[in-house]
Design a protein around this nucleic acid. Sequence first.
DNA 1: CTGAAAGCGCTTACAG
DNA 2: CTGAAAGCGCTTACAG
Lengths: 342, 342
Amino acid sequence: MKATIYDVAKEAGVSIATVSLVINGKGKISEERREEIRRIMERMGYKPSMIASALTGKKTYALGLLVPDISNPFFAEIARAVEDEGQRHGYSVFICSTDNKDEKVEHYAALLQQKNVDGVIISTGMQQLSVLKPLLQGGVPVALLAREFPLVTIPSVVVDDYAGGAAAAEHLISLGHRRLAVLAEQDSISSSRERVRGFRQTAEAAGISLDPAYVLSCGRKDGKERAMELLSMPNRPSAIFCCNDLLAIEAFRAVKESGLRIPQDCSIVGFDDTVLASVTDPPLTTIAQPIEQLGQTAVQLLVRQIAKPGEEPEKIVLRPSISVRQSASALTDYIGKPEQAL
Amino acid sequence: MKATIYDVAKEAGVSIATVSLVINGKGKISEERREEIRRIMERMGYKPSMIASALTGKKTYALGLLVPDISNPFFAEIARAVEDEGQRHGYSVFICSTDNKDEKVEHYAALLQQKNVDGVIISTGMQQLSVLKPLLQGGVPVALLAREFPLVTIPSVVVDDYAGGAAAAEHLISLGHRRLAVLAEQDSISSSRERVRGFRQTAEAAGISLDPAYVLSCGRKDGKERAMELLSMPNRPSAIFCCNDLLAIEAFRAVKESGLRIPQDCSIVGFDDTVLASVTDPPLTTIAQPIEQLGQTAVQLLVRQIAKPGEEPEKIVLRPSISVRQSASALTDYIGKPEQAL
DNA sequence: CTGAAAGCGCTTACAG
DNA sequence: CTGAAAGCGCTTACAG
């Protein structure tokens, strides 16, 4: 049914070796023959099978992309950047949503390896780094995107999460906020930890302590609930820093459901600057990640790694910026009131 | 370096055929041997290469998913549903963002074929159906998701776009709107055409004509611009039906930028009910697609097609529903004014 | 119950 | 300038 290299060779009256050479633009073959064979391939609608060529030692030109959830707008945008940059280098990409569960990470890692992907971009959190062992030991090139593992030398590109958290704190503090709270992701996610750390240290440097009771970790579905907890505390926070935009939206819902106003009663700052941020009511002030650049850089690091497996792994840090919109404002309602009374 | 079936066979002192049989759970092999060989595979960290087994006539267990843009929340959610249902059946999925461009569709179609994917889910628009010829002729199973091609018999799952457009019109008309406008997608997208058709016919059935000048097609980036055009028309529409949520957001921006209020000065109804809809200000009234079910059904149709290529292709139609939020309201400001004066 | 052998569709030295 | 042959890592009849 589908034409193979044999069909083309027979049609052209040459050996399959010759056909293979023209496919790959190799060898010394007369330009006429080359052209003729090309024409025949074209006419027969022949496309070389990548899986056959992969088996012969060439690459599969497939990449794996591990993300927590492709339906999360941040990772959807990352995926698009990875896809485009991948295509630019000839690679297709498999999507793998892990829900940040080690078992799924492990499952996908094994699967990708069996599929002989040329490399894997990892942008998912995990409890145990060891789930990546098989990949690493299997010699599968890996690049980390927006994730870090301090003790391992894997090429990675991250945004300076600490600086992002710090920027959020600075912004809120400059607006006069003192009672700060944080809605964090699961503790297993290093980027979230760093954001909280940057936020906390900046607050403390400004003489504002961040009570651990006001730093809540959220799972996939309980963001609003956690935010509600914060809002119902005796000493309600005047501002909440959310470790991603999705959490910020959960916080929005909680605030509104509590009959409070944003930002007058409670300021909110997010993280990521996905499409969601410009769509909320009011538009979300958030720490912006250079999403496209993250995706592109990760692919480039991986491609380099594939080409020269021996190379010293690079670690690239991109700067976040703050997108000031309208979800965080000065504490106007409290003007004049003494800090203690708040 | 990586263990092959030969290494396992040698280690176990059997032939590779025997190993292959235990991998696939076939043949009649003593339970002891079977167990022993399993243990050896485990110990050696052996995982059969899928590309080798694919070359031997088995499947690649890879699917292609053609969408306009994976970073579009609607398609990101579709992708997640497809990924999950695919995994359930043993398939991994390649993401392919086409930007609705025929050249990209063609490119990806050829690529997926070369990669010997077992099937392709198509959820992207195209001008020429002929770009799919290679896939269809190549005997690659295909399923259509939220797309239709009237003349071709390909298994497909769609939402009743006509009914969705009709529901939007009914809702707006019941709220008293008479000056209706539409922000459509490109004409090449059949679902968009159907939505507009349902909207138009329902309006006309209610005695409201929809001037073609008030139905504008948008490209990837000019939604806001087109919406601005509508708003600056001499006879400004009191309600705009947008053929997807992203367009609705562009319309939101245009309305606000014009100093108008939603919904008092201009009602807006979207389509899709993605995560965006609950996040806008005010929350978006929109036609809800059963996204998860769409993705699942498409995979199931494809899997069936893969298993029994001869089967009559099914066409499944899912019903949309309307998610009433707050972006469309009754024409309170105009109460009492005669229709002509509007 | 198990092995030898052919074959999947390519690529790559090696001859000539 | 081009072909014969081995090999990639599997699966699948076919023998025995």
